[in-house]
Amino acid sequence: MSNVPIALQGGPAPVPSRVGHVLGRIEYEGYLLAMIVVMGLVLTFTVGSSFWSSTNLSGLLLDVAIVTVPAIGMTLVIVTRGIDVSIGSLVGVVAVVAGLAFEHHLPFVLVLLIGIAVGVGGGLVNGAIIAWGKVPPIIVTLGTLSVFEAITYLLLGGVWISNIPAKLTQVVVIDRLGPVPYSFVVAVALVALFSYVMARRPIGLRIYAAGDNPEAARTAGLAMWRIDLFVYALLGGLTAIAALMTVGQSPLVMPTTGQNFELTVIAAAVVGGTNILGGEGKVVGGLLGAFLVEIVEDAAILYHVNSFYQQIVLGAMIVGGVSIGVARRRRRRTEGSLE
């Protein structure tokens, strides 16, 4: 009953108002962009000099990059009707492994590759239990959250790793393309890549289909387990990239590295318009959502708002983002049935 397509409800629907009609033409991403621009303008006119300072701006862009990269993966996971709350502690694992590898003076690029491999591995564990164990994703990732935390602790052995090579910080934070840190360029490039994958590659089509109507997808013979493995492993890999960026940003690995990071990423994804019920969501929404979340945070810092309020705002953005999404889809349903 519940997965009957929306248009089944048929029947006469209220004629949408003219305003509603015009607004309906604008894509959700347009609103997000507008909100970011408005936030930017407000900041410009109030605390313009500090907002446009190159330290603030590049710091903001780096923060956006760190959230955006895993938000791409989170978007895909949510599109398949999943969720992953373990990525915060996965950040910890990757950071520690990378830190240890640096301590052993492994080649720079090899360390990066090892870090990403660890992330993919963690994601594969989640994906495998979800795909084959038929355990709800929230339970699986709640469990692995603490497992990853324990692994981080074990590997750290109670000490902090602080001798991260300056090269990482150089690459992540200092090297820039104009005013834009390379990390942000990487994030944008990944967004472009996965926008392309989701729009133009067969796997993208299959991911959308699997989340939109799992029953239909299964009947059509799509290998659902492959899709699960793919999205969770991808999220793991992207999380690893974010972890490496985090280590570059603050070259210190400690047991709390990455804590609560998953919430920011989930916030970015749902604020970015991904349908929490699956089947819908754009990778670029993750970027815009991350931007909005981070610019709000930046504003809080610039206005010297108590940092405690930031958490409240973030929570409100998650709940607000999803309820706007629910309302938006409800409205579209009544309009859609006009046909």
């Binding site: 609560n260 916030a267 929490i276 958490q311 705002v313 973030l314």
Partner: peptide
Amino acid sequence: GLGVPALVATIGTYFGYAGLALV
């Protein structure tokens, strides 16, 4: 009331209430 799935709603309030406690 708003139809937000419990999982996401309480992730949001987990955050929000934590901030409230700090405040």
